[in-house]
Each structure stands twice: as structure tokens, then as C-alpha cells.
Design a binder for these strands. Structure first.
Lengths: 156, 156
DNA sequence: CTCCCATTGTAGCCATAGCTACAATTTGTC
DNA sequence: GACAAATTGTAGCTATGGCTACAATGGGAG
């Protein structure tokens, strides 16, 4: 990732971000999406079945077990989850926290879409794509619209 | 991109999409985001400066000219734009149409975020990430919320 | 006309997220 | 306990989107 500062003479001093910074942010978001999707899925599957295997994730995302394996390797290195060879996948504390936040945000986005009149099917699909790009500030506005208070961090 | 059908015995016939299908859709969306960002940027830069060079795009996205070059190669192959070697970038008709739709959707998402009370800076950033994941159906709800009619350009 | 500089292209590298094919391991069933 | 099935790992390929380094091109300034 570049710092983006050599060529930009910075004509604007106001707090407005440059388009470069915005796109860099979007790219950074991208790098987190997979992690969020995976910890969310692990949490969900563990809640449903007790344990989560790589094969469960492969079925869940409809990708090959190899893809799952590689992604799990990365997420293990990032400290979000752990798994012994041929063993089940478990979330670390960090992973559990990320999963909770993701699930909560997912729920909020979904309910918000439903609240403004989007049909259930579309809402499910769009929420999946949108959730990763909704900032805390925007999430608060969603919650405000839903007439709720910001939930106590894990009230699901 | 896989078709995802060998291993899925398709137990559910109801209209509800499986999670697999939803994630496949998100991955497909992903493949379009760059294209949309680029044609949108080209249209914007052409509108501002008359022509658009690769270097303009590199500055706009804060990436190297090599990255731009490779992406332009792909988009040329996809028929969204054309450019002679060492020449400026131009949108094809298809590219122009895609740019218009993207710009319009971008505007709608941005205005919608502002309308629900998101601050300007956050709205700019979130809109950039969200826009690619908003379906036509959801866009219509956004427009309805804004009290507008679906604009004549793409009233589908 | 030449020379310099910005722009573009090319080569080659990295990481992520896909895949198939094949090997290894675990598990479950006789 | 052995054998089959499911699961996981490994090797090696593809495409996208990043990068640096170096070569080529084109447009201006002298």
C-alpha cells in the first residue's frame, strides 16, 4: 500500500479526504471482508453443530476445500482462529469478537434494508455485500432509523 | 468462477437462495467493481479535462501506472473502453452506459446516506464501498425514500 | 534539432482467492 | 483390525490487482 503523498500538492487543507485516500480505504476494507465472512460463518456453524470443520465452510461458501484451507491458513496466522491439522476450526478471542461485531452489523444492515421496504430475498443478498462497507457512523444512523439504541456489543 | 453445481444436491427447491448462491453473487459483484470504478473515473476525468490519460487514473486511485495499464487491458478486452498505445483512454458506448448507471447509483447511495443523517465525509467514504452492492430493487427503495421517481435513464 | 521529462509499455515479482488432481489422514462400518 | 468414505493437506495452475525496475515513446523547451 502506498502512502500517496509525493505527487499530491494538497491544495485542500480542509478535513476532506482525497479520492486516493477513499479508494485506499475501500481496498483495505476488501482485505477484511474474507476474514469477517469466515469468522461469522465459523461462529454460526459452531452455534448450529457444536464444531466447525473445513468441509462445512467449503459447503457454506460453495468453494473447494482447498480454497478454505488456504484462507484458514492466513486467518490462523492473523490470530483470528486456530485449528490443529485435520482438526476442527475454533475461533480465538479476537476471532470471536470480530464475529460478534460482524454478525451484529450484518443483522443491523439486514433489518434496515427490510425496514425501508426491500423484499426479504433482495435484502439477504444485498446485506451480504453491503455489510462490510458500513462504517460505525453509518451503522449508528441505521440503528437510529430502526428506533433502537446501540446494542450492548453482543446482544444477539 | 465456478458454476457450483456438482456437489450441491439441491435439496431445496423453494425460491429462497442458498447461502452458496448468495456468496457466489457477491463474488460476481466483486468482479465488476473495478470495471465500474474505472469507467466512472474515466467519465469524470473526461468531463473535467477533456481527455483521460492512464496517468490521470493512476493519480485518481493512487496506484501505479502499471496497475492501471493492466486493468485497462482487461477492460479493453471486455469492450468497455478503447485506447491506442500511448494514447488517451476513451469509453465505448457500453462503457459510457455503464459509467452513467454507476454514477447515478453512486449519487443515489450518497444522497440516501446523507438523507438518513450520515455526515458528509463518512457518506462519501461509505458510498464508495456500498454502491457496488446495491441491487436495482434496493436502489428503488433508496429513491423512494428520497421522494424521487426513478430517473428516466434506467427505469428498470 | 536535440534533449529532457512525463507518460506508457514490458518484465517479473507478491498476495489473495479460485480451481483440479493426487496424497495423506481420520473416522466409521463391518 | 481392515477397508471404505469423508476430510484435510499438498502441488501446481489461473486470474485479479498490487508493486519496482527498466525500456520505449512522445511532447515541449531550449
Amino acid at each position: 500500500m502506498q502512502s500517496g503523498s509525493q505527487k499530491t500538492p494538497r491544495k485542500k487543507s480542509p478535513p476532506a479526504r482525497t479520492s486516493q485516500e477513499i479508494f485506499a480505504q475501500v481496498r483495505r476494507d476488501h482485505a477484511m471482508e474474507t476474514a469477517e465472512d469466515y469468522v461469522e460463518a465459523v461462529a454460526k456453524i459452531v452455534a448450529q453443530q457444536g464444531t466447525c470443520r473445513g468441509a462445512d465452510l467449503a459447503r457454506h461458501f460453495d468453494v473447494s476445500h482447498v480454497t478454505v484451507s488456504k484462507i484458514l491458513t492466513r486467518l490462523k496466522a492473523e490470530g483470528l482462529l486456530r485449528a490443529r491439522p485435520y482438526g476442527p476450526v475454533e475461533l480465538t478471542d479476537t476471532g470471536t469478537r470480530l464475529a460478534s461485531m460482524s454478525q451484529q452489523r450484518h443483522e443491523t444492515v439486514l433489518h434496515f434494508l427490510l425496514a425501508i421496504g426491500v423484499d426479504k430475498e433482495t435484502a439477504r443478498i444485498d446485506a451480504e455485500g453491503i455489510e462490510h462497507h458500513v462504517s460505525q457512523a453509518t451503522l449508528k444512523r441505521f440503528l437510529a432509523f430502526l428506533g433502537q439504541q446501540p446494542p450492548p456489543t453482543s446482544s444477539r
